[in-house]
């Protein structure tokens, strides 16, 4: 069974919020209605977002790391928000594992938001229904788009490719490989929600650069003199001849 998900590489994310703005732009202009902001230019702005980038500082000064942490619905495989919904507006699609809200059935009782330990759901204060990341379900199956663009808006926007999208149940997929090879993990595993979205941890990246890597010992440009032109019957090797 397919389980679509995002894999977010915390080692690569630079916290530029391109995924946030791209998500907002796509999802506020779709057929499901806007994601309204209230008082956006005032003293106390407020708005509905599917995706937010938060920033954490890990460690004690001066040995700190700044971790930018993109956060959206994790499309849990055991979503606690779905069974509590009294109307059936919240549901998990069997065919691709996306957790969705039917905005026409939602009564705005907020019980699903209480039941989500991740705070992934946000009530739209204008439409008065619960909203959350749809994994751009209106994009990824749109055959009018070129195949390369049938991916969530946040994934397309990420300038550092920190966001991967794919089927985590397919062991050969890019996302499964990333999880397997790079220590992908789930958030709050203690609640047994089995989030589909995974995060790749910060990894120590140290570049060892030796002098001979900066400058090839056999660099032909370093040769002090022009090499004699080989005869026609001699082998002509770049490093030993010049002409």
């Amino acid at each position: 069974m397919t389980q679509l998900a995002l894999v977010i590489d915390l080692n690569v994310c630079v916290g530029c919020h391109a995924c946030v703005t791209s998500c907002k732009e796509w999802n506020t202009s779709g057929s499901a209605g806007p994601l309204p902001d209230h008082n956006p230019y005032g003293a106390d702005p407020s708005g509905t977002f599917f995706n937010r980038v938060q920033t954490f500082e890990v460690g004690c000064f001066p040995n700190t790391q700044t971790v930018h942490f993109p956060k959206s619905c994790l499309h849990c495989e055991e979503p606690p928000c779905v069974p509590v919904c009294p109307t059936g507006a919240s549901y998990k699609r069997a065919e691709d594992g996306i957790v969705l809200v039917d905005y026409d059935k939602c009564i705005g009782c907020k019980y699903c938001a209480w039941a989500c330990p991740y705070g992934a759901r946000e009530l739209d204060e204008q439409q008065k229904v619960m909203k959350k990341c749809t994994l751009c379900v209106d994009r990824i199956y749109d055959e009018s788009l070129p195949p390369a663009e049938r991916r969530p808006a946040c994934v397309l926007a990420c300038p550092t490719s920190a966001r991967l999208f794919g089927d985590i149940h397919d062991p050969e997929s890019e996302v499964s490989e990333a999880i397997r090879e790079n220590g992908g993990y789930q958030l709050m595993p203690e609640w047994g929600t089995r989030p589909a979205n995974h995060y790749l941890p910060r990894r120590r990246v140290r570049m060892e650069i030796h002098a001979d890597e900066l400058e090839r010992v056999d660099n032909p440009l370093r040769k002090e003199r022009q090499q004699p032109r080989p005869a026609l019957d001699e082998p002509s090797l770049d490093d030993v001849t010049s002409w």
Binding site: V20, G47, T48, Q54, T55, C60, F69, P117, E125, P189
Partner: peptide, 27 residues
């Protein structure tokens, strides 16, 4: 049972939030 460590999956005793992904209020 949950802590900032399990919430973002980083095993370090000292984690301080610097930004919430919202300049103002949110739901």
């Amino acid at each position: 049972r949950s802590s900032p460590q399990t919430a973002i999956g980083i095993r370090h005793p000292q984690i301080v939030q610097k930004a919430q992904g919202a300049m103002g209020g949110a739901f």
